[in-house]
Design a protein around this nucleic acid. Sequence first.
DNA 1: CGCGCCATGTAAGCAGTTACATGATTCC
DNA 2: GGAATCATGTAACTGCTTACATGGCGCG
Lengths: 176, 176
Amino acid sequence: MSLRYALLGIILKKPVTGYDVVRIFKQQMIYFWSSTHSQIYTELHKMENDNLIDHELVIQETLPNKKVYSLTDTGKKDLIRWAIEEPLKPAKIKDNFLIKTTIFPFLPIVEIDKLLDEVIEREDKILSMTKKWQEHFNNQEERDVGTILTVEYGIRYSEMYLEWCKWAKQYINEIK
Amino acid sequence: MSLRYALLGIILKKPVTGYDVVRIFKQQMIYFWSSTHSQIYTELHKMENDNLIDHELVIQETLPNKKVYSLTDTGKKDLIRWAIEEPLKPAKIKDNFLIKTTIFPFLPIVEIDKLLDEVIEREDKILSMTKKWQEHFNNQEERDVGTILTVEYGIRYSEMYLEWCKWAKQYINEIK
DNA sequence: CGCGCCATGTAAGCAGTTACATGATTCC
DNA sequence: GGAATCATGTAACTGCTTACATGGCGCG
């Protein structure tokens, strides 16, 4: 049920198309939620059905037609209510790589190094992309506090992950 | 499909009951995966069906009977193969609270403070529990590298989260 | 007397993934 | 000529959650 509130939060800031919602979601919420375009389109239909959003159809000449979604009053109220009243739940993480970490003692050191290097490379890329986005974002007027806070979170998460990887590499090479 | 390898990793270290798997999972894997006893029992059945594990039934007098699971050769091979060959996937996070963060500009400051305090309290508890577990774990002989690494990860994650929360509180109070 | 621990499971429903499906335009 | 962007969706399946279900023992 939380995805719906993530999407409401996006549309609250300004009316957008489903396509925009997907784009904004992947840019700004990837650090703390995950979804796909197919789930997002389906959820938007359900939300409209529940009268939380409605849309205006915009006919375009060359580009395909689009639906611009806005929050209804019900939607606005429900979002704020949810944020204030709905109990917080501890974050749920699904991290493939850390499962592999649990069986490091049973893997050849070469393979462990390979895995760690791959993760470091991946996380390095994510971190630099996030920093670029943060910089770009800081140079616009419409930057909102919500995004400032969550982007900072994304950066800190990646930095923590990278530092842990480097510590792990060193630790493994010390005891081997 | 990753849950199955998390469970295989637990059973690999020593043969245990389903009940033990649940207990170990909740203590050691909560930092990077989430599941429930009902899903774990169901998955163990599927894994046995796929010949990755088998069990020995232990009849107990006063306590209920139990099934002690061990990895089969197929299970062992498949786990190692998975760890080395299966592509890494970026971590997926589902964090309720950070969705709320995105709409902070639309919430009363009192409510924002309440939310942040609640998260800080929660994360403080988790952190101190993890540190206790790490200390206890360091004082046994059978401590394995896998757990040393992932527990350290858990501590760093909570510390990062707490520091971010405190930064966010300050940031919000500066600009308000 | 009630709570927590040991120990196992099933069923129904909801959430999320992967694949399929279309099609014009713009840029290299 | 091919890839990326805009723009929307459905279907089948798998994964996950919540609730239901049982029951004895030990401890305070």
